[in-house]
Design a protein around this nucleic acid. Structure first.
Lengths: 241, 241
DNA sequence: CGCCTAGTTGAGGTAAGTCAATTCACGTGG
DNA sequence: CCACGTGAATTGACTTACCTCAACTAGGCG
């Protein structure tokens, strides 16, 4: 129970009762694994299933006609994959595992049925979706109004904060399987420039990203440089008792 | 009833029953008006109310410490204002009326209560929030991967498509109260460059934006140029019967 | 051993920014 | 009625952040 990252996440917002926990548990149907790099949700496909990420990293992205891609968000354990594709009847984006991943599959009908039976669960999921949207919004601000160095610093700090919430990161740093190409597609930069910016941050003594690990050199300096404000990720305990 | 834009919007997704309609109607408490330019939701404030926009335009934005701002989205009649600030207990963004606006106020407790009593309503709101998120995502792609001209063209087309859904736009064009400064803050450009890009699009015979009106000169050419795909805004009738 | 992917660095080009000046429409007060 | 101020749009000249192309290194693996 407690090692289920989704329950942990939703429980932070809605104090889940036994009835809701059992509905949630009944959703966890088929356990599946996917290998890195092979899409599990395709842009434009209809009637997709959704998933909850149990282990590994994934990313959701959109491809433009000219072949460019924009990574919208990375997903870490506890996050939904393709929730919107259920609600909108069709997927407006693709999802690709960054590493090998484990997921549990959720069918649209089951989820909608669960909402009808336990309205508090629907509220909890709405809350989780809002939190995801807040992160996309922050990402939007990143790309729209910060220069490359601030953008990278802010992004790495935010990722660290998210990982810390699910015990996968600390004030020292975190394991990060992203390549510079993935970072480039997420930040709207070229891979070459990502490399240069990482060097800048390293030489400025703020953060080092090497061999799959992000290590903070001077967290406070970096947070100040990036104008990083983690307050929107906090909350004051369950909104629904 | 039918002239209520929110009911129209949610009804497209969930076939609302009488009970749900009456709960929805009971939400529409206080009618308020705000003048253009004066914020109704402030970034960082806690326990805000949310609103449903009845008439006029608003925008949601974030301010950075250095004074830059990024407009995340524009809201048109039928849209929620500050829904996230209810769910997250505090507002991560500000909302400012672009024109004088009319809204109906919704209190957090009432909304959460309504969800508990009518789960289908919660699902409908979740759907609406997902649709909003899809638009933010498209905006993210715009800023991250399209050059200024494509970005502007895509943005104007998307705005037109949204307005057409609520009968405020057509294949010819639409009334648009945005200034070039607002466009700049939304698209991550400078106001000067917005001006130049609008001229480009005008001289290319695609679209004219003048005196508060966007008029398409060659819709198909523009849609092709911007790689505009409106499919994510469509859907195949109510998901919940 | 050789190939492939990820990362690194340099040189030169370009899209978009900044600064600055001008016009125009509008409102307001002398 | 006109002088004035203000906000929006427009355009030109110059600067810069980031891109593209290209070459090279280092590790992993058949």
């Amino acid at each position: 129970m407690e090692n289920n990252p989704l329950i942990h996440k939703l429980g932070a917002f809605v104090a889940l009762k036994d009835a809701e926990l059992s509905v949630l548990a009944s959703l966890h149907k088929r356990r599946r694994t996917f290998v890195a790099g092979r899409d599990l949700v395709h842009q434009g496909q209809s009637d997709q299933a959704a998933y909850i990420l149990a282990s590994g990293w994934a990313c959701s992205y959109k491809i433009l006609e000219d072949g460019q891609r924009q990574i919208v968000d990375f997903q870490i354990p506890g996050d939904f994959l393709g929730l919107r594709s259920i609600l909108l009847h069709m997927s407006d984006h693709s999802v690709e595992p960054v590493t090998d991943i484990e997921v549990t599959e959720i069918h649209a009908a089951d989820l909608l049925d669960a909402f009808a039976r336990t309205p508090r669960l629907a509220t909890a999921v709405l809350w989780a979706a809002s939190r995801d949207e807040a992160m996309v919004v922050e990402h939007l601000v990143d790309i729209g109004r910060r220069d490359a160095a601030q953008r990278m610093a802010h992004f790495l700090l935010e990722l660290g904060a998210r990982l810390t919430l699910v015990k996968l990161g600390s004030k020292q740093g975190y394991a990060c399987p992203l390549t510079q190409y993935l970072l480039a597609d997420a930040l709207g930069l070229s891979a070459v420039h990502v490399n240069r910016v990482l060097r800048q941050l390293r030489e400025a003594g703020m953060v080092t990203f090497r061999d799959g690990f992000v290590m903070y050199e001077d967290y406070d300096k970096m947070a100040k440089f990036a104008q990083f404000d983690p307050s929107y990720m906090d909350h004051q305990g369950p909104l629904l008792k």
